[in-house]
Design a protein around this nucleic acid. Sequence first.
DNA 1: CTTGAAAGTTCTCATAAAGTTCTCTATCAT
DNA 2: ATGATAGAGAACTTTATGAGAACTTTCAAG
Lengths: 199, 199
Amino acid sequence: MLSRREEDAYRFIRDFIARHGHAPLLEEIALGLGIRSKGTVHRYVQAIARAGLIELVPGRHRGMRLRGQTPGGKATLPLLGRIAAGQPIAAIPDQEEIDLSEFFMGPNRFVLKVQGDSMIDAGILDGDMVVVEQRPRAGNGDIVVALLDNEEATLKYIRHNRDGSITLIPANAALRPITYAPERIRIQGVVVGQMRSYR
Amino acid sequence: MLSRREEDAYRFIRDFIARHGHAPLLEEIALGLGIRSKGTVHRYVQAIARAGLIELVPGRHRGMRLRGQTPGGKATLPLLGRIAAGQPIAAIPDQEEIDLSEFFMGPNRFVLKVQGDSMIDAGILDGDMVVVEQRPRAGNGDIVVALLDNEEATLKYIRHNRDGSITLIPANAALRPITYAPERIRIQGVVVGQMRSYR
DNA sequence: CTTGAAAGTTCTCATAAAGTTCTCTATCAT
DNA sequence: ATGATAGAGAACTTTATGAGAACTTTCAAG
C-alpha cells in the first residue's frame, strides 16, 4: 500500500522508463515530483521496491527495473500517448492509464478465437481473439457472430434489408456478401472488441 | 449488522476505492456523508472493520482495504471456442477462461494509441491501441516503435540488413519501405499486443 | 588505471497531515 | 428511564512528507 507521493513516484518511474528506455536518476524523479531532496526520493523508491512494484540493483546508477505488477493487482497499463507517422509520441493529457478490464469486460461477454480470413479487411486476422457480447439483435454495420441454418457460425458484417432479409458481408475482397432469409440466421452476439498477441 | 450510517460509510468507502484506486481519508468520508467530526467517522470505520467488511492498517493514512472482494473485479472472460467460416463454434472443452492481464500485462509495457494507416495491412487500424514492450533491440519482422533522428516516432516492421542499415517497412501498399543508417534509428519498443474496442 | 564528479545511501531534523481516543450532547424507540 | 444511534470537537499520537548534511559507491574521462 503506497502513500500518495510514493504512488506519484511510481507512475513517474514507469512512464520515464517507457519514454527513455532506462530508469531515471533519483534527481530526475525529484525534479519530476518537485522535490529537492534526493534522500526523500530514495525513501520513496525503497518503499516502491518493498511493495514489489520495481526491482532494485543497489548502488547502481539508474538501477531500477519494472516488474509486471500493478498496485492493487489491477490490470492497468500506462497509456503513454498517441503515435502517428511523422511525429514523436504525443502525450495524451487526460488519460494516464488504461484499464484492461474496463476496456473489454462486461456482462454476457465471451471470447472467440478467429479462424480464417473472412474479416481481414476489418483488421481481424486469423488467430485474433474477438470479444463478443451475447445479444440476439444487432445494428447495421455491426460485426456479428451469426449462426446459419443452425449449422454454420460465421463472423461477418451484418445488414438488415428493407424486405426483412439479412445480408452478411465479409471484409475480404475475395469473398462476396450473401443475403439470407431472416429465419435462416440467428445472431449469437455482436463483436465489441478485438485483441491480438504477438509472440 | 451495521447501523444505517455505518452502512452509508461502507458504501462510500467501496465506491471511493472503485473510483480512485485507493482508500479515502477519514475527512473525505466525513465530507461524503456530511459529517464534520472525523472522530465519529473513525468510530464507523472501526465498526465496519469489526463486521469484517474491510481490513484496517492502524495509523496508516488511507489504511483500509476491502475484504471479500467480489470476484467480478477479475479481468477474465470465458473463452468459448473457435469460430471459422463454415463451421459452428467449435467448443473448446473445459470452458477455458482468458485472463486479460496475462494476455497483455508484463514488465516494461505501455500502451499507445495508433494514429494513421501505416500498419493497416497488418491489422493495426487507425485508433487501435498497441501494447509496446520497451526494449532497445528487436528481431527482424517485429513491429517496432522507432524514433527517427530523435524526432519522428513511427510504427513499422523492422528489418536489419547485412550492411548494418535498418529498413522500416510499413504495412500499407500505398507506402514504401525506407532504409536508414542505424544511428538515425532508435528502437523505443516492440509491439507485443494490439486491441480495439467497437462502440 | 587513476581519479574526481556524479549518483546512490544513510542519517537527522522539522513540520504538516491524518489517525486515535476521549468526553459531551442530543434524539429516538422501547 | 435506558440503551442504541448520531454527531461535535478537543487533545493527543503517529505517519507522511520534505530538506539537507555526510558519507560511500559507481562510472566515465583522461
